[in-house]
Design a protein around this nucleic acid. Sequence first.
DNA 1: TATACTAATGACTAATCGGTCATTTGTCAA
DNA 2: TTGACAAATGACCGATTAGTCATTAGTATA
Lengths: 277, 277
Amino acid sequence: MLKKQLIMEKALELFSEQGFEATSVQQITDRCGISKGAFYLSFKTKDELVISMVDYYLQQFIIDVDQVVRGTYNKETVLVEFYKSIFQAFKDHSASARVFFNEKVFLTKKELFHKITAYEAEMSKSILYMLEQLYQDQLQETKYDVMYCIKGFMKSYAELFIFSDMPLDLEQLAKSLAEKTDIIAHHTTIPFITADLVPFIAKPCEQDVSKDAVLQLLEQNINHAEDSIEKESIELLKQEIENPTYGKAIIKGLIENLRLDPAYHWIAYVTAKYFNI
Amino acid sequence: MLKKQLIMEKALELFSEQGFEATSVQQITDRCGISKGAFYLSFKTKDELVISMVDYYLQQFIIDVDQVVRGTYNKETVLVEFYKSIFQAFKDHSASARVFFNEKVFLTKKELFHKITAYEAEMSKSILYMLEQLYQDQLQETKYDVMYCIKGFMKSYAELFIFSDMPLDLEQLAKSLAEKTDIIAHHTTIPFITADLVPFIAKPCEQDVSKDAVLQLLEQNINHAEDSIEKESIELLKQEIENPTYGKAIIKGLIENLRLDPAYHWIAYVTAKYFNI
DNA sequence: TATACTAATGACTAATCGGTCATTTGTCAA
DNA sequence: TTGACAAATGACCGATTAGTCATTAGTATA
């Protein structure tokens, strides 16, 4: 498992320097200080490496954003905190941001394109949730437009982090974009993305978390679990899905058990969605 | 010359389907219905093809935007016209937009990265010019931020054109984004990109058009010219650069001669910049 | 020490790449 | 019809690729 992480990190470096197609497995293993054979013990193919990397790096990003959005109860600061966490992530992980967001190296591989699109849709949901909490009914007509503006701000200002390493005042940037977002939200009168357009924009990704998908995810991870608390929590959540027994409090507790370990963040996130918690 | 265009068009199709590195010269020539050898009669290397494509497709885009910005004198409509032309271009050339803007396939090749960055900087200049004309002194502190917002709107909404082919109301989109731009311009109070930050952001590209660069460009194209008017105009402009003689009117006239032929749009654009016309 | 097992190696293969060049094809004027 | 020239071809080359597998190194148990 540690080997996998090493490979993913070094591969990310190389991908961000040279791109995906231009980076050979040999180069990756050289930088890792391992043999080519060892690579194929961790990943069946080069493509599988990339798929794992997308999951590894984008899940973290989505989770961070969602936690800020759902964890900040102060309406005055939630927008600022949102932008701060986004750009802090761009700053800390500029290599993966460059590879996965700005380049869309993987545009061509259908499976990966859908994966990335699905993660982007997750982020859109978090943003929409934030807007609904902030502006409630004031934003009926224009909330999708405001969301698109936010994503545009992100894409545009991310350049500053991705293509240069000059010191930037994150706090000031977050304040500036929060103000812009608030201005747009309050003053926009001409929407473009209307409710009837949304179904066509919504990308081919699971709108809701399906029962089978969650069960499969839990199944996959039940064996990796070493800590007994986590193993038991996963086991119990699996049973709960197949045969609902406990109340919300217990379910939430089990999920929180998982959320404590970064390795289970994603499971916690998805399971919470399934149970609407 | 026609062969070159055929190759560039078919290559663009393949690049947008599979990406640059993943597309082989063989595939390109197969789709063109020519032999591999014939390819190398038109382009010395695969890289040279890509460089030519960047010039061919991005120049058109920059010129279109600049013409709208400088040609629309009605302050009420310039923003709407600007967005309409941008998204019309995205709609008409979604393949090249996908390849050159959204993917940055060429991020890794230094030369190409600088080229694309330079073209983007050209567009930024056009946008800034538009903002200065529209808002004049009202936008001292925040004009760079507004420009970044505009570029963000473009990047975000361009998705709709690039990743789906549903019919969209261009007029409505342009009006909606024009309103958003106007709102941002009027209400923003917290700038992020301040004047002292700009020199660091400005990318390593020729800030002003250098004399030698223009001379070289004219030199290169003097032989391609078939129409005698155009050949003569280029010749005279070259002499004018080396030895200023005529007044603005004559120079502008010579440039306009070139602007009439799409093949010389770019030369006209650059030369006009050199003479500050 | 001997045995059994897994982890790790790197030489190897078959395929594909960008690019070359001797050869063929097509098109003129003579 | 011939000869001269340019346009076009595709077999071929060396280099590189993703992926394999017989072999070796390392480690734990008996």
